[in-house]
Simulated assay, not measured.
Amino acid sequence: MSFIVWSVIFALVVLLAFVATRMAARNKDEEGFRDTGLAILEFNRAFPHEAIRQLQATADGRVVFVRLHDNKAGFMRNMHRHFSCHVLEPGRVRVVSSETGKGLVIDFLDHPHHNGVFEFASAKEAAEVSLWLLGNYVADADLALPPAEKPAANKQ
């Protein structure tokens, strides 16, 4: 009799673990990239040699734009079961402000299936991301640096 009781308890524990795992996976899909740590881990898994300088999530948390070193940007989208990560080269993206002022209408020339309207929490965030994508971003910290000396031209 005790064997049957222990078998039922074990089956219930396994069932509860399965249900908890499924609910956690569903919450992860619904949450998107609200956790910036998850976004950093996923992007570094896809592109381990790219240095991340800054992240900016859309208002719904489904998409994260990544500012990378050497004037490049990245793009991450939650695709429910996986994350789609891309490195974007300057000049390979078309960006227009949306009608709301807080969003961007983006055409990815190399990844057209990701084209769309991306809404941010503020117009400032949208403007900053547009500069990353267009390759024109100059951070406030960069403006404070003294100008570098230009090397002398090669004389022949």
Rank of each mutant, 00 (worst) to 15 (best):
Thr58Met: 04
Thr58Glu: 04
Thr58Trp: 02
Thr58Asn: 09
Ala59Leu: 05
Ala59Ser: 09
Ala59Gly: 02
Ala59Asp: 03
Asp60Cys: 07
Asp60Pro: 04
Asp60Tyr: 00
Asp60Lys: 05
Asp60Trp: 00
Gly61Thr: 03
Gly61Gln: 03
Gly61Glu: 00
Gly61Val: 02
Gly61Ser: 02
Gly61Lys: 02
Arg62Asp: 08
Arg62Val: 08
Arg62Phe: 01
Arg62Ile: 04
Val63Tyr: 05
Val63Arg: 13
Val63Phe: 08
Val63Leu: 09
Val63Thr: 14
Val63Ser: 09
Val64Gly: 04
Val64Ser: 09
Val64Arg: 06
Val64Phe: 06
Val64Thr: 13
Val64Tyr: 05
Val64Cys: 13
Phe65Ala: 12
Phe65Glu: 12
Phe65Pro: 11
Phe65Thr: 07
Phe65Lys: 10
Val66Ile: 11
Arg67Trp: 00
Arg67Gln: 11
Arg67Val: 00
Arg67Thr: 00
Arg67Gly: 01
Arg67Met: 04
Arg67Pro: 02
Arg67Cys: 03
Leu68Phe: 01
Leu68Lys: 07
Leu68Arg: 06
Leu68Met: 08
Leu68Val: 02
Leu68Asp: 04
His69Lys: 15
His69Arg: 15
His69Trp: 00
Asp70Asn: 11
Asp70Lys: 15
Asp70Ile: 00
Asp70Met: 05
Asp70Trp: 00
Asn71Glu: 13
Asn71Met: 09
Asn71Ser: 11
Asn71Asp: 12
Lys72Trp: 00
Lys72Glu: 05
Lys72Gln: 13
Lys72Ser: 09
Ala73Val: 03
Ala73Arg: 04
Ala73Leu: 07
Ala73Thr: 04
Ala73Ser: 15
Gly74Ser: 08
Gly74Gln: 03
Gly74Trp: 02
Phe75Ser: 15
Phe75Pro: 14
Phe75Ala: 15
Met76Asn: 10
Met76Asp: 06
Met76Trp: 06
Met76Gln: 14
Met76Ala: 13
Met76Arg: 08
Arg77Gln: 14
Arg77Phe: 01
Arg77Thr: 09
Arg77Cys: 14
Arg77Ala: 15
Arg77Asn: 10
Arg77Lys: 15
Arg77Tyr: 02
Asn78Thr: 05
Asn78Arg: 11
Asn78Phe: 02
Asn78Ala: 11
Met79Ser: 13
Met79Arg: 15
Met79Ile: 04
His80Gln: 11
His80Phe: 02
His80Val: 11
His80Ile: 06
His80Leu: 10
Arg81Gly: 07
Arg81Pro: 01
Arg81Gln: 06
His82Pro: 09
His82Gly: 10
His82Thr: 11
His82Ser: 14
Phe83Tyr: 11
Phe83Gln: 12
Ser84Asn: 14
Cys85Asn: 13
Cys85Pro: 07
Cys85Gly: 06
Cys85Ile: 04
Cys85Phe: 02
Cys85Tyr: 02
Cys85Asp: 01
His86Gln: 15
His86Leu: 13
His86Ala: 15
His86Thr: 04
Val87Gln: 11
Val87Glu: 07
Leu88Trp: 02
Leu88Ala: 12
Leu88Val: 11
Leu88Phe: 05
Leu88Gln: 11
